[in-house]
Design a protein around this nucleic acid. Structure first.
Lengths: 112, 112
DNA sequence: TCTGATGCATAAGATTATTATGTTTGAACC
DNA sequence: GGTTCAAACATAATAATCTTATGCATCAGA
């Protein structure tokens, strides 16, 4: 990620879950492009962070995979599980409450 | 910090600078209390993170210190420097733009 | 007198990211 | 036909930043 890197720590899973919840199955490379587009080129997921995170989320039951061969090239599609859907709601709630708190501490304009 | 710890990564300096900019000189322990109060008890700065960060910020010229003895007990007051004032504006701008980006990606309500 | 708050500080460990490196396939261009 | 770049996966080394644990000392109040 290139957008104030430290701030983005801890948001990667939330982003991945949300995008998968909205757009159905996607593969890693596609996620990178989609997030870049959704963020107006300000967030570029790095592969070194993305792939290990995807693996961990699969291990934790938040995602499930489906490998597809496109010609001789592998694509590993990820899809959100029911547990993942619960998780994304919680994570987004946490994020919003985090923003609210920070808005108070930093005296930012009100969050609607 | 106890408020979704990962999310707060990278915000510690911003918080410290902002509070010092608003309230003048403060010492470490006082900062912990003030931030706790400003955040409605949701952010408790941990000393293990706070003190090393204060030292680093002083080394980087964002803060200057003034040691005062209260009885036999030391208090190390921190005050924001001109460089610190520039830094806090930049950091807050970055934070706001980070929120905007995340709002777009997560489809949150609009940030005013 | 003892406990808890005040006040500083550092070290070990965990987490999560970046950067670097590696491999293979396919398309486009000259 | 060869070169270059995008597509697509993956892991390892390193860095940054935090939590948890530990330590020490002072002071107020029960």
């Amino acid at each position: 990620m290139n957008h104030s890197p430290e701030l983005l720590k801890g948001t990667l899973q939330t982003i991945v879950l949300k995008v998968l919840a909205d757009y159905g199955k996607m593969y890693g490379y596609e996620l990178v492009q989609r997030v870049r587009q959704l963020s107006a080129n300000t967030i570029t997921l790095t592969e070194g962070a993305l792939y290990p995170t995807l693996h961990r989320m699969e291990k934790n039951g938040l995602l499930k995979t489906e490998v597809v061969m496109v010609g001789k090239r592998m694509r590993k599609y990820y899809r959100i599980t029911p547990a993942g859907k619960e998780a994304v709601d919680v994570k987004i709630d946490n994020f919003v409450s985090f923003i609210r708190t920070m808005s108070a501490v930093l005296s930012l304009k009100a969050w609607v």
